[in-house]
Design a protein around this nucleic acid. Structure first.
Lengths: 132, 132
DNA sequence: GATACGTGGTTTCTTTTTGATACCAACGCT
DNA sequence: AGCGTTGGTATCAAAAAGAAACCACGTATC
């Protein structure tokens, strides 16, 4: 296998190991471990969305970062970019089948964030109080 | 139609919205949307692990970033830091109950990365070839 | 007919974050 | 004496993110 000696209690049958520096899965996790990519994928879950609509919906993302994220996701085969030669060009982004298989995992993350927010905040206040 | 109203097809019953810039869930997603945090949580899934063991297992993480990530995860109430006053101090990190509820989602992400790696790589090669 | 706005980006510059390295104190091993 | 180990912090250079301007092209407004 990729690494040296079983640092993790993880099925050995798999050829990839996320803990290994050179493992390609790391590159995937680099991309997925990015809040903007997560938000974009989540936003595309049920809709076909245009560039500026994404920019408007995902508050705080810059045009530069959005175009980078979209380019990477497209390269990974997760999303589809479709450009229509209308007058101001129209570009639509949608999930490809591979992206659809991923969205479930992503969705559970964003859902977790929304449902467990209050517990996190409580823990943070406790922590901060204990440090002060 | 494209714009402002109904940015997301998301249940309105929830008080939080990840797409909103000021929503606290964003802070959670900032933390979770971090490859290192994802890897640390995944590594702690079944084991209690010490600082330097984490550093050794997660290839490529720097000491500084690891300590930052751990501090944040501890503040969020996701992991527990236990220090024993042994001669060189011993520090153990383990999942707290709140972290355990999260690990399933994280785990499915890392698992997805490992199982769909080959498809990603194929898509990347196709993309790169089409650009060249 | 000039001005402003919308399209989907790229370019430039500044600021923030990351990563690499060194350092720390107290002790064990050789 | 010199090196390694513990779990970190301090420092500085490199990389990434964010803010803003710019682009061509067309349409609606004044």
């Amino acid at each position: 296998m990729v690494t040296s000696e079983k640092p993790a209690s993880r099925p050995q049958s798999l050829c990839f190991n996320v803990y290994a520096k050179d493992c390609p899965t790391r590159m995937v996790l680099d991309r997925l471990g990015d809040k903007w990519a997560l938000l974009v994928l989540d936003r595309l879950q049920n809709d076909v969305v245009r560039f500026n609509a994404l920019k408007r919906d995902i508050h705080g993302i810059s045009q530069k970062v959005l175009s980078q994220v979209l380019k990477n996701l497209e390269r990974d085969g997760l999303i589809l970019r479709t450009a229509y030669p209308t007058v101001p060009v129209t570009v639509e982004y949608s999930l490809k089948p591979l992206g659809t298989t991923l969205i479930e995992a992503v969705s559970s993350l964003t859902h977790w964030a929304e449902t467990h927010m209050s517990e996190i905040q409580a823990a943070q206040h406790l922590y901060d109080a204990s440090k002060a």
